[in-house]
Design a protein around this nucleic acid. Structure first.
Lengths: 249, 249
DNA sequence: CAAGATTAAAGTGTCGACAATCGACGATTA
DNA sequence: TAATCGTCGATTGTCGACACTTTAATCTTG
């Protein structure tokens, strides 16, 4: 028998993907608030609770670290990232930056097909708005924006968006409620799509600025409400390696 | 009197950072071409050769994966990332995107002090140009751009730049020669700084576009020269795996 | 002789264990 | 009393081992 060529509609091999499962479980626990920001994630504890060894737990933690949900402190362990206002601002600032870029690229690559896909996703947004399911609404919102990145056709950029989205999902999850009226959210996507269809870079960036900036302000407001004044975070190390054993600066 | 703990000139505790050391060693091997793109990195082999166990090697590999030098394929191991033209283009495209943004932010935050730091780094670039030390030249070049990101004062953005720089360093290392005249490189930084000092977003982005775009084209040209026509990649970098001909040298 | 089946080797995923290290608590001292 | 130093428990860093999967080599068989 042939090795059976690639199953294209990937059925999610999640059966034997232990670290993936653990990562998902941890992520759930974080966004559901069972692991509050700043709390320590003890490898052995998680391992015992899940009936596995520490190795996969460790790898899962590293995965979540890459996504920004955890921060690692050498010899101290993993901690759930605290959401400072500063982090929120930095994330949204970066998102603004890449979303502008993606918008312009998407406009350049836009085909009738991809245009139709975007339009349909806006319909989905409108439909979802009636469901009173905030999590679903947020998810569909991200899906729209992700489509723009897919059309932009830069995998590196798409990966970055996914990372940012994971962090923002944590933020949203912790806030616990939607940051705006769902119908309003759905509506604000339309001028953005229109700008992309028109293909004028300035209009695109302007609309992205408006759209993302709005979410930024709303989320910032809510986070500021929820954050106790003495909130302090654990610094992310950002230890990046430089080849020629040069100093990191 | 305050306790005054921290000794100011702290000498980097990195002594017992085993995974960091291993990561550096592997990175060296990669950029020096001893581990050619596409080759397999066998955990046990590296571990035996370095006299350590597989665990820290694994972690080091994950670190390098995060930086994009390795790609992981479940149950198959780590491979040195192949540099396709497409990857180069995507990386430079993203770099262009964030470097514009950082430039504008830096201009907004610019102080006489930070301005002076940038100016001094350009001097360093000129001095280094005489040394005939390509690696050093590249390093000082990155340092200049990194300074811009530091001044921009968005840690998330800075981290992203470091990641991209690590990938680009690999590219440069593999190309083996500098992509341009060192003096020319030093000179082209001056109008960029001038634009930042002037603080006009349009001028900044224009100069960034010119500056980065130049490097982009040069690197692209060299990579295209060096790449055999049948170059194929092993996996897309985001954890989603696309099995292809797993050439292991 | 080539294509498929079979077997052997190599290598990753996971495990449990041990030593080194960190943080907290309490004893000691000025 | 307050600060410093040691001690102890908890937790990470690292190790070697084993099972299962993948890859390579060998053997059938038409």
């Amino acid at each position: 028998m042939r090795p059976m060529s690639l199953p294209v509609g990937l059925p999610a091999l999640a059966d034997s993907d232990l670290v993936g499962q653990i990562a998902r479980i941890l992520m759930q626990a974080i966004v559901q608030g069972r692991l509050p920001p700043g709390s320590k994630v003890v490898e052995a504890g998680v391992a015992r609770e899940l009936g596995v060894s520490r190795a996969p737990v460790r790898e899962a933690a590293r995965l979540l670290e890459k996504q920004g949900l955890l921060v690692a402190s050498p010899r101290r362990g993993f901690f759930v990232r605290k959401l400072e206002i500063r982090n929120i601002d930095e994330i949204y600032d970066l998102r603004l930056c890449i979303e502008r870029h993606a918008g312009v690229l998407a406009a350049r690559n836009l085909t009738p097909q991809s245009r139709e896909v975007l339009r349909r996703q806006i319909d989905v947004l409108h439909k979802t708005a009636d469901l009173d399911d905030p999590a679903r609404q947020v998810e569909e919102d991200y899906r729209f924006h992700r489509l723009i990145f897919e059309i932009a056709d830069n995998r590196r950029l798409l990966r970055l968006f996914d990372d940012l989205a994971a962090e923002l999902r944590m933020v949203i999850g912790l806030i616990g409620r939607l940051y705006d009226d769902p119908h309003e959210i759905a509506r604000t996507h339309e001028p953005l799509l229109a700008a992309i269809e028109a293909g004028h870079p300035e209009r695109i960036t302007a609309h992205v600025d408006y759209h993302i900036g709005h979410a930024w302000r709303e989320v910032g407001k809510l986070v500021r409400e929820l954050t106790p004044p003495g909130g302090n975070s654990i610094a992310s190390p950002s230890g990046i390696l430089i080849p020629t054993n040069g100093v990191t600066v």
